[in-house]
């Protein structure tokens, strides 16, 4: 008999035990491990997906930030450029103003210099004129310049109109101080006496007359009291001469041509009658 029934039963039992044992020790642990691993992998993939999504979100956020930053930078750059432009314009204006001021100052300095030059010129011219006149007069008429000037001054005094004399008289009478005769040169005793006599005839003798010498006086001789003044002066001659010299120089510098030949004759003005 090939089949032993006891063995069959035993083997059935053995097989069932083996099934139970293998289920317990082989299939369940292995399948559990596989499931756990698959779960882990799924979790990891999900995690990676989530991280990727997060990274993508952050990337977008950073991109937006970058764009905003660029925009802001451009705006600020434009602002700075604008400010620089304004600043540049202001600085240019300031520099222009400075240059203008400097130019004005230079012009002023030039004018001052010209003015002082003119004064110097007029003084030296006057002295020259005086020197020439003195020489000419002494050569031609054997009289001194001073004497002639005194005579002319006296002539002028005598030639004053009645209204002018009245005005002058009242003015000199009102004044409390003495009458002052100033000359650019020292007068001789004879000349002083002549002047005193002439003034006395005209204004009365009650006033004391003082004589003073001012070498820088432009006018040759002047009579002053209480702000009123009678003078003979060559200032006008000199002014006219200076004007002509200026014109001459100007014309020469403009045209570089020869100076005009005609010289206006110097005409003496009358009494310089001024007062305040």
């Amino acid at each position: 008999m090939l089949i032993d029934w006891f063995t069959v039963i035993a083997q059935v039992i053995n097989f069932l035990i083996l099934v139970w044992l293998l289920k317990r020790f082989l299939y369940q642990p292995i399948l559990g491990a596989i499931d756990a691993r698959e779960k882990r992998i799924a979790a990891k993939i999900a995690d990676a997906d989530a991280k990727e999504a997060e990274a993508e979100k952050q990337r977008q956020a950073y991109q937006q930030k970058n764009e905003a930053f660029d925009q802001q930078r451009n705006t600020q750059m434009n602002e700075v450029l604008e400010a620089a432009k304004v600043e540049r314009a202001q600085l240019l204006d300031a520099t222009r103003q400075d240059a203008e001021d400097l130019r004005v100052r230079l012009e002023q300095a030039l004018r001052n210099e010209q003015h002082s030059l003119n004064e110097e010129l007029s003084r030296s011219t006057r002295e020259e004129v005086f020197a020439i006149a003195r020489k000419t007069l002494s050569d031609l008429a054997d009289i001194s310049l001073e004497q002639r000037m005194t005579e002319i001054f006296l002539d002028r005094l005598r030639e004053l109109s009645t209204a002018q004399i009245t005005e002058l008289t009242s003015a000199f009478k009102k004044s409390s101080g003495t009458l002052l005769v100033r000359t650019a040169f020292a007068l001789s005793a004879q000349q002083r006496a002549a002047i005193e006599t002439a003034i006395g005839e005209m204004l009365g003798k009650e006033k004391q007359i003082e004589f003073d010498t001012l070498p820088g006086l432009v006018s040759g001789i002047e009579l002053s009291a209480d702000g009123r003044k009678i003078a003979w002066s060559i200032a006008d001659y000199l002014g006219s001469l200076a004007q002509r010299v200026d014109d001459l120089l100007k014309n020469r510098s403009e045209t570089e041509g020869p100076a005009p030949a005609d010289m206006a004759t110097i005409t003496p003005e009358g009494v310089d009658h001024s007062g305040h």
């Binding site: 044992l21 082989l26 642990p29 491990a33 691993r37």
Partner: peptide
């Protein structure tokens, strides 16, 4: 079979 299974499955790894 059982001992082999038990020995191998005693320290199963769920890692990769």
């Amino acid at each position: 079979l059982v001992l082999g299974s038990k020995m191998i499955t005693r320290k199963l790894s769920t890692e990769l």
